[in-house]
Design a protein around this nucleic acid. Structure first.
Lengths: 210, 210, 210, 210
DNA sequence: AATGAATGAGGCTTCATTCAT
DNA sequence: TATGAATGAAGCCTCATTCAT
């Protein structure tokens, strides 16, 4: 009731390390079996921690979910922002973003699975926050495509949908990357961007499949 | 064999209609709130049926989930098979498949959401069955791309990944179609295929974004 | 999330009866062992109901607590209001309130124990609501004492504290009534009021114990 | 015998001081939020002690509760015994007891709240012990009232209940004293006793409220 | 064709307590 | 002296499902 003290976390290093492990293990479980289907007990088992002890490290199952979201989304967003601010051509910057995104999807596949697949399990403010971050990321991609058009690199009929196509092609990778874990992000990025940028390049000779 | 019928189902028409409604309502709920987060009670409420009565129409929650999967996947697969057998060019057939797929994703968006997003909630044999169907569908796309290469329409570096890129771009549509419900599948298909086929067309002038 | 349907209660009579029993049994347990110390399982056991089945009848443990509060407090308040509006002398009306209150304390001793002893276990709005009711009741007593002074029946040095003394003497009865369950409320009331009104009567000869 | 000491306690002064603080803080928390609702962690927080460290000072939560009981109950009982043995009139001695009791209720309100309100959280022997002490205290009051009757000071219809009325009026004070923390025990005592003794005085003119 | 009532397993979380350091 | 880490039982509650009516 009055001044109910919130659990305060040790700033200890050992604590931080253990905590990290737990979040990683949870991400793996969530990615493999789904957030809702994964019980706190399973997370405890994976961490070799009794039910109660787990709560020494986490605040709640959903807080854990949020952390998994943020741990990859935040740096990703940060990188995307920096890339956007670079001086090179829009297509070059999009390639960088493509690679950065695919690197996350491939190398942090559990975390990314979680935030691409389970973000609806976030509720309330947590959900709002996360959706905002994703919107920012997507806007960066949309802006770069628009720049490419302005600067005469691309020729695009329907910009919003093209943006979604670009993102979709990349994002959906999380679905099959679990089965092909040793992909090289750079190579995948080159393939995607090769197809995509050839497909929207100014002056391309439109005729295929018509 | 799973799916042993424990109850004899009436072949009555009225029964079938009611049943249909229930499956539709369940699909909507699963798509909106997630399979795990949707309770049997909610489905009953939506169908204006008490908990008990619901079980007159369904065998179990998971059987319901399976049915939602099959109701759209089966016809889709059937169509894809027929298209594959047509005489026209690979790119033309891929465009047809693209459109058929997007039509399902857009017009039956609840069902498709469920089977693209929640298929991991299927267990045991049900899961195996469904994964097989998806594999068949994906193989058709892969085969058509290969045909396109053989027949000199396409030039592709990494066929499997290109196939996944094509599918990913399409599939991921289910994520944003909820927010843009009145898209025209044909138009979306044209955009996707326009980009994609231009991007893999033989003789294209590879240079964008170098 | 969206339109989550609140459990709606059958208006069935059988249901109401069973429900009543459950509330009574819970009141007894709360009175005997305390609200916090009484587990949902114990309530279920007392009602011969499995854990889950209990929730068919109640919304939550705290809702149960609230109901126990209201079931006796509301009629009591109603009666007190009516008595206050009567035409007879303040002391006569206070005697009526005394008797009504003691009847509740003695005959519904479990419920009264709960609301005199456990009201702090109510939280949020429930607590506010209940405190308001108690304040109304206490104000009625205070008003009647004031009327008695105005009309020349009583002579009181410190009205607020006298009011509290009157209420305290009555309320505290709940503490020992468990050990003397067959008291007659009328008799107890006469004793309390006899002492109290003699003790504050105008023209009394103040000297005892000085 | 309960209370087997499992740890050897330092007789150190510093230790005793710290311990005292802890008990005081616990009493405050128990009084404010209830014994069951107060966690060991909160007590630790209040004492600025980690959970583990707390157990250096206390044996268990319930032992703490017991100590709070005894810390005020024991001296109170002692005083009551001494007062009873004095030579003055029963009413005078009752007034002293009234004042002593009210002084405890008002000045040590946290401790008193705990032992008037939470004594049922004591279990086993601890509970027996405490109930015995309370019975002794109550017997002293009963005996003095009886003496008053014998010596012609009081005229009482139902001695046991009159005794309970006297105690109830006093005890219940703990309920509202939290909201009026700066009462003067002497004044409250005078009001209570004024009413009460006038109300039971021999030769009083019984008629009020008839 | 439908229902109300019941089940019991399991959900997430908090608790008082211990113990090696 | 004090602590951080761990425990496991118990807390309240929801779930999919069944079955007599």
């Amino acid at each position: 009731m009055v001044g109910r003290t919130r659990k305060q976390r040790p700033s200890n290093t050992q604590y931080a390390i253990r905590r990290n492990e737990i979040v990683d293990q949870a991400a793996e479980l969530f990615a493999r079996n789904g957030y809702a289907a994964t019980g706190i007990r399973e997370i405890g088992d994976a961490a070799q921690l009794a039910r109660g002890a787990l709560y020494y490290y986490i605040n709640s199952k959903e807080a854990l979910l949020e952390e998994i979201h943020d741990r990859v989304m935040d740096p990703l967003l940060e990188e995307a922002r920096k890339i956007k601010a670079l001086e090179c051509s829009p297509s070059a910057r999009l390639r960088m973003i493509s690679e950065v995104l695919l690197r996350a999807i491939i190398e942090r596949r559990d975390h990314v699975w979680v935030f691409l697949h389970e973000y609806r399990s976030l509720t309330g403010q947590r959900r709002v926050n996360f959706k905002r971050k994703r919107a920012v990321f997507e806007k960066i991609v949309g802006d770069l495509l628009a720049e490419g058009v302005d600067e005469g690199e691309f020729e695009i009929d329907d910009p919003p949908m093209t943006s979604l196509a670009f993102l979709g092609m990349h994002h959906y990778t999380y679905q099959w990357v679990q089965r092909h874990p040793d992909m090289d992000p750079k190579i995948v990025s080159d393939i995607y961007c090769g197809i995509f940028f050839d497909g929207i390049r100014v002056g391309r000779d439109k005729k295929a499949g018509s």
